[in-house]
Design a protein around this nucleic acid. Structure first.
Lengths: 336, 336
DNA sequence: CCTCTTTCGGAAAACGTATTCCATCACCTA
DNA sequence: TAGGTGATGGAATACGTTTTCCGAAAGAGG
């Protein structure tokens, strides 16, 4: 009933040539094949609807045309933007992208790298800041992959011995603090994510450092999930406790900030007027909310593209690319 | 320098057994292997950091543990939510997801299916409503894949002879129109996408039908790109021309609606108060904008999950699953 | 006209794994 | 104790490609 997919041999037989010739005709081999046979093979292939078995090709060649992408959560706009950049870059290089999602679990991440290694992809791209703990097991897994000729690139997770594209989280947050102080704010709360995430920690510290230069320090710090719901919950909690004299809440990423804005409105308050909000990332939705969100713009899509270029470049030294961020002030932090 | 990755044979040698035994020990074979040898092999594998070559496995077995996903744009929250559901389902079934992005180009989609077919994935899931034209070439490609034992599932694109999960776009839009008329609105404009997209057409027609039952018809219809920028541009155009007596703009999806809201604000108007807006999809951002967006809720993530279940189920008849939608009225369409 | 090179086709080996056959051995039953 | 049965190990083959190697034919230079 379900006949088999046509193989190279079927094509060769149909064209009346050997398997070797068929193979040479159907892909860019070094060897050339006469125009006559070439046509024969091409036509036979078309007639049978032949599609080369890429797995077999991979085992024969010992290499694949595949890039593996590991993200925490593909529905998160931050990661899906990076993913889009990576897909761009991969397609430009004629590669297919395979994707795996960790759900922010380090165990799962380790497991995934191990499985992916089995695919023998051309490159592995890790996106998202990982937990610090079992750094080691993951590093082993990756260096095994690397030793066998694999390429690795990392997004936004400096400190690993691989090509890395990142931003300066501390500096971005520091500059944001600067700008907000210049706008007249004095009393800040920080909404941070789990402390194990480098990104969250660096941004919180950078912001604090910026305040310190102005002789200020945060009135309060709340820890929450790195998600929109996390931001909502944290802000609700803060409001319940009475927000005291806090004038502005800095959330370490935009989705949390947007969650916080929603909590604000749920409580009958107006973001920007009653309490100012700032985020980090400049996801697309940042301009969709009202008031538009003050944030630090991160070139996510470009980071993805750059990461894959890094992975593909056959460089010896692990290169560290820091892409610039920029503070963008919007309606959620009016001048006081 | 770059030594090769350890192979099954290396493990077998290290453990002092034959390749066959090693193979049987390292994956769920029908055959059983003595506890003693099993341990030997497992330890050897761990010692060498062995990861089975999945390509070789695939050619030997003639099947892969892979699901291919085709979407239009992974950065679009609609698709990334569906993708998240698919990844969920795939991982539950122990499958890896490979992803390809069409950028909404039918040519590219055709090309992608052809490449993907070469990967011999366990299943192919198509997400997003495709253009009607070269339906045929695509259908050929897919049925070739199917004939060779592949599974296909389709999201939101009924009419193909494959397992399909979708929603009733006409009905959803119709019910939305109903609800809005009940809210006191009488003068509507429709912001539709390119007419070749089924989704866009069905939603526009459904909305029009709903109005017709109340003896109304849309004052105006504007066509634009299916993206946020498209919505922004269309709304700007509408405002420039003078929006006349339009009371409410229905955009055929949320990202367009959100773009339209932004255009409104850019023109100094207040969405909801000066002009009501409604969308379709209920993407996460719909509750983040202010006022929150009235829309038709589509269970995107669940659609993804369901799609992969459909693909994996070995059913004869192509099943058509219609997931229910629900109108959700929010602040962007206050009662008049 | 003879060698030397180049071009091109096919047979066969290789890639890393799964699986089909045997062969061996222990154990059980009568 | 003979024959049957079930468990287990290994040699060999298969999977669908690519690639090496060899030989034949064709053209170039003397």
């Amino acid at each position: 009933m379900t006949e088999q997919a046509p193989t190279l041999l079927d094509v060769a037989r149909e064209a009346g040539v050997s398997a070797a010739t068929a193979s040479r005709a159907l892909n860019g081999s070094t060897r050339t094949v006469s125009a006559e046979k070439l046509n024969l093979v091409l036509q036979a292939a078309a007639r049978l609807g032949y599609a080369p078995n890429l797995s077999a090709q991979a085992t024969a060649r010992g290499s694949t045309k595949t890039v593996a992408l590991i993200v925490h959560d593909i529905a998160d706009p931050y990661f899906s933007s990076i993913a889009a950049g990576i897909v761009d870059g991969a397609e430009a290089a004629g590669l297919t992208v395979t994707m795996a999602v960790t759900g922010r679990s380090p165990d799962r991440e380790l497991e995934i790298v191990s499985i992916l290694r089995g695919h023998r992809p051309h490159a592995i791209v890790l996106a998202g800041s990982r937990i610090g703990d079992d750094q080691e097991a993951l590093a082993d897994e990756l260096s095994a992959y690397r030793a066998a000729g694999g390429r690795v690139a990392v997004v936004s997770q400096p400190g690993l011995p691989y090509g890395t594209v990142t931003i300066d989280n501390r500096r971005g947050a520091d500059e944001l603090a600067d700008a907000l102080v210049a706008h007249g704010y004095r009393r800040f709360a920080i909404l941070r994510g789990p402390d194990v995430l480098h990104t969250s920690r660096d941004r919180a510290e950078g912001f604090t450092a910026g305040l310190a230069r102005a002789g200020l320090e945060p009135v309060e710090t709340v820890e929450a999930e790195f998600t929109e719901d996390g931001g909502h919950a944290a802000m609700s909690g803060l409001l319940d406790r009475g927000r005291g004299e806090v004038e502005l809440v800095f959330a370490v990423n935009d989705v949390m900030a947007i969650g916080a804005m929603r909590a604000l409105r749920d409580a009958g308050l107006v973001p920007g007027r009653d309490l100012a909000i700032a985020g980090f990332d400049d996801i697309p939705a940042a301009v969709d909310v009202d008031p538009a969100l003050t944030t630090v713009a991160v070139p996510m899509r470009k980071m993805g593209r750059r990461a894959i270029e890094l992975a593909l470049a056959e460089t010896e030294e692990p290169e560290l690319v820091r892409l610039p961020t920029s503070v963008v002030l919007r309606g959620s932090t009016p001048r006081r």
